[in-house]
């Protein structure tokens, strides 16, 4: 019997009787990271990284959470479980399972470039590797983070010069913290949407250092918002919430912005192809570094990526899961302190 099985509820370990990132409520769930397509409410007990726990509490409310550190093994019914940095967002982890010499690794979401906040991706040797493929086409190759940050900084400065505020749309866990760092390199006049501010509060509480930024509340005057940088989830695009920043320009920060058509389709002024997922070369590197005999591809361009791996002589199969969406959705509660549209 395989150590992991693909079931209707999600990835299941029969020996240990637990699930990894299940999409239906189960008894015991091991969670790779706090994004909504991986961590869902309703399970009885959760196991996750120390930094993921407060984020789950924010999103899913109070539950039985067990926290572990990276490389700190726990045993469930004789299955050895250990978490390893995935480099995707703060707390994100790959999950390694081992029993009787057979090793599986579930990548969750990951990126191979070290972003300086999420922990550097650690390749883990295994027999079977389950990889994501959100950007599993060779058109997706990212610029180094330093270059992307410089582009964002330049855009902000140009807007300030011309009297505009800069609204940066980013997923509130992960991208928002990186964009905040990029912005903080050129200005300290930064505001956060409630959803981002709540996430940041939790992270700061957990001991993460983030640049200072103010929360947008009803009491912030229009004058204070002039030429400011605003970081908000993409759900605010085309919503009246943005009005208070007029005149403003909007940029979307997402790997999908790599393609011109996507930039234009979204009603935005700029797009930065900055992602928390591995690019094509990152995926290939990661897969090779595991030395896995069998690769399962989920979550994205699975058919193209698995076919390509096959042609490279790597056993690969595509697996349909319920992870990932074309454009990420954000469900961090935006605030208890502010009325949202």
């Amino acid at each position: 019997m395989a150590l992991l099985q693909f079931t209707d509820n999600g990835l299941y370990c029969p020996d240990g009787d637990f699930y990894i990132d299940p999409w239906k409520p189960v008894n015991k769930a091991v969670i790779t990271h706090a994004h909504s397509d991986h961590a869902r409410a309703g399970s009885t007990a959760y196991l996750c990284h120390r930094l993921t726990k407060p984020l789950l509490e924010l999103r899913l409310g109070a539950h039985a959470y067990q926290e572990v550190e990276w490389n700190e093994p726990v045993f469930i019914n004789g299955v050895r479980i250990s978490l390893h940095p995935a480099g995707h967002v703060i707390g994100s982890s790959q999950i390694q399972l081992e029993k009787e010499g057979e090793v599986w690794v579930v990548s969750g979401d990951y990126k191979t470039e070290d972003d300086g906040v999420s922990g550097a991706f650690e390749p883990v040797r295994c027999n079977s590797f389950i990889t994501e493929s959100t950007f599993g086409l060779p058109i997706y190759n990212w610029q180094p983070q330093a270059v992307q940050y410089a582009q964002i900084g330049e855009w902000i400065l140009q807007n300030q010069q011309q009297g505009y505020s800069s609204v940066l749309l980013a997923y509130s866990l992960g991208k928002a913290q990186r964009v905040l760092q990029a912005a903080a390199m050129v200005t300290d006049h930064i505001f956060l949407h409630g959803a981002v501010a709540n996430t940041n509060d939790v992270l700061v509480n957990a001991g993460i250092t983030l640049p200072f930024a103010k929360r947008v509340t009803a009491s912030v005057t229009k004058d204070e918002l002039k030429k400011a940088v605003v970081i908000a989830p993409s759900s605010v695009l085309d919503s009246p919430w943005l009005k208070r920043f007029t005149p403003y320009r909007v940029a979307i920060c997402s790997g999908w912005m790599q393609v011109r058509g996507n930039k234009r389709r979204q009603n935005a002024d700029a797009g930065f192809a900055i992602s928390d997922h591995a690019d094509w070369n990152g995926l290939l590197q990661a897969v090779k570094a595991t030395g896995a005999e069998q690769v399962y591809v989920t979550h994205g361009f699975q058919s193209a990526f698995s076919r390509y791996l096959q042609e490279q002589g790597i056993q690969a199969a595509e697996v349909v899961t319920q992870y990932g969406e074309a454009f990420e959705t954000d469900d961090v509660p935006s605030s208890t302190q502010e009325q949202q549209p």
Binding site: L137, P138, I139, V259, R260, G261, F301, A304, R307, Y308, E311
Partner: peptide
């Protein structure tokens, strides 16, 4: 491989 090129072309559209 050419099939992968076509896959990319389909996604980008240009």
């Amino acid at each position: 491989p050419d099939w992968l090129f076509n896959e990319c072309y389909d996604t980008v559209g240009d």
